[in-house]
Simulated assay, not measured.
Amino acid sequence: MDNFSPVWSAIELGWNFSQKKFPEIDSGYSVSRVSVEHRGAYEIMGETGQREAALDTRLRDSALSQLDYPAVGDWVIHTKNARHDRRVLITEILERDSIIIRRSPKQEPIPQIVATNVDILGIVTSADQPLDERRLERYLVTAFSSGVVPVLIVNKSDLKGTVQRANYVRTQYPELEVLETCGIHGSEGLGIQEITGDGLTVALTGSSGVGKSTLVNRLLGEDIVRTGEVRADGTGRHTTVRRQMFALDAGGVVIDTPGLRELQLWDGSGLNLVFPEISEFVDLCRFSDCSHNEEPGCAVLEALSSGLISESRISAYQDLSHDLKELRTQIEIYERSKRHRRDARP
Rank of each mutant, 00 (worst) to 15 (best):
T196F: 00
T196Y: 05
T196C: 10
G197N: 06
G197E: 00
D198W: 01
G199S: 05
G199I: 02
G199C: 07
G199R: 08
L200I: 11
L200D: 03
T201Q: 15
V202M: 14
V202A: 13
A203H: 08
A203W: 11
L204I: 02
T205P: 13
T205I: 10
T205S: 14
T205N: 09
G206N: 02
S207K: 10
S207A: 14
S207P: 10
S208W: 02
G209E: 04
V210D: 10
G211D: 02
G211K: 01
G211I: 00
K212Q: 02
K212E: 07
S213Y: 12
S213A: 14
S213F: 15
S213R: 11
T214Y: 01
T214A: 09
L215F: 09
L215E: 01
L215M: 08
R218F: 08
L219G: 10
L219H: 06
L219F: 10
L220K: 01
G221V: 12
G221C: 10
G221K: 12
E222C: 02
E222Q: 08
D223E: 09
D223F: 10
D223A: 06
I224F: 00
I224H: 01
I224N: 01
I224V: 14
I224P: 00
I224M: 03
V225Y: 04
V225A: 11
V225L: 04
R226I: 05
R226F: 14
T227F: 10
T227Y: 13
T227L: 03
G228C: 07
E229P: 09
E229L: 12
V230I: 15
V230Y: 15
V230R: 13
V230T: 11
A232I: 13
A232Q: 13
D233Q: 12
D233F: 04
D233L: 13
G234V: 15
G234E: 14
G234I: 15
G234P: 05
T235F: 04
T235H: 09
G236W: 11
G236R: 04
G236F: 05
R237H: 09
R237I: 03
H238C: 02
T240Q: 04
V241G: 03
V241S: 05
R242W: 14
R243I: 15
R243Y: 11
R243P: 13
R243Q: 13
R243H: 12
M245N: 07
L248T: 02
L248D: 01
A250F: 05
A250Q: 15
A250D: 07
G251N: 05
G252H: 14
V253W: 10
V254D: 04
V254W: 15
I255T: 05
I255M: 07
D256Q: 13
D256Y: 15
T257I: 08
T257F: 12
T257D: 03
P258N: 07
P258Q: 11
P258T: 06
G259E: 01
G259Y: 11
L260H: 07
R261W: 00
R261E: 01
